[in-house]
Nucleic acid binder design. Structure first.
Lengths: 140, 140
DNA sequence: ACTGTAATGTTATATTATATCATGAGGTTT
DNA sequence: AAACCTCATGATATAATATAACATTACAGT
């Protein structure tokens, strides 16, 4: 996973520096969203500088390049499960276990853009988050 | 508009107190989302107590009863344009003029719930926000 | 009048995010 | 190699958003 991203960065001449890589790894190891200050703590544990801008800069970079998504309803961040692909993700947020999953490619975002076009609104980006109960938690 | 909400409150035995009503009116007079601290300023201007909990409590109440929606990507609030109706709103956020409009009833949210059900996820609530350019701004 | 519940007042603090200016690291131009 | 440019990082301060906790008041039902 990191492999692909690393290659993507080299190909596009963008730099996955140590702190950026570390943040990405931290997020990839989590099934829940992490807040910037949680990430900051984990960075400190890993021996990095831990002032807020450090985390926010790394997150800005990762989000900008599509390696990480921000979950707006939680002010948290998750690793992208399909990095490189330009997409309009849909997130499933479980209120029992807090897990955040990116929904497998769905037509929702494009349907939405089309539907809104009828109102004269030109969609550039969509934020779609669903709160509910994941299949694992539903079973218990 | 306030009329209907007032009636709804009486019918359901919930209280639209002065500060709650004022916040609702402030939001109804705006086409953009307002942040809690902006609302707080406006409350102060109107002679109300202006400690943060005042605004947040009023907003909590209004959101809970569906009179106001929170725009998660902006940490702002807008008046509901179809209060009383239990719905899954879709918002159109214009990046030029900052206006926030609630999309006329769309199938998007229910389509989404259905699509995600296939993954085993049980949707309870959806957050759908589209960023782009409104028809007014597109014309200029 | 008594009591229970919801609303408001008040103070303090937690959480999330950014502005600003200084320093460093690595290319590339001369 | 020196000068320069750009991007990344270091460091300090502060802004913006949100809630905890406890005291007081208002008011309906008994």
């Amino acid at each position: 996973m990191i492999k692909n991203i690393d290659k993507y960065c080299k190909d596009n001449n963008i730099k996955l520096t140590p702190v950026r890589l570390k943040v990405l790894e931290l997020l990839q190891n989590e099934k829940c969203g992490l807040g910037a200050y949680r990430i900051l703590d984990l960075l400190r544990d890993a021996g990095f500088n831990s002032q807020p801008p450090v985390a926010y800069r790394a997150l800005d970079f990762l989000v900008e390049h599509g390696f990480v998504h921000k979950i707006e309803s939680q002010n948290s961040f998750v690793a992208c499960t399909d990095p490189g692909a330009h997409h309009s993700p849909v997130f499933m947020i479980c209120k029992k276990c807090d897990s955040v999953s990116e929904a497998p490619a769905s037509a929702t975002a494009s349907d939405l853009s089309e539907a809104l076009m009828a109102t004269g609104f030109k969609v550039e980006q969509t934020i779609i988050e669903a709160e509910g109960v994941c299949s694992t938690c539903a079973d218990t």
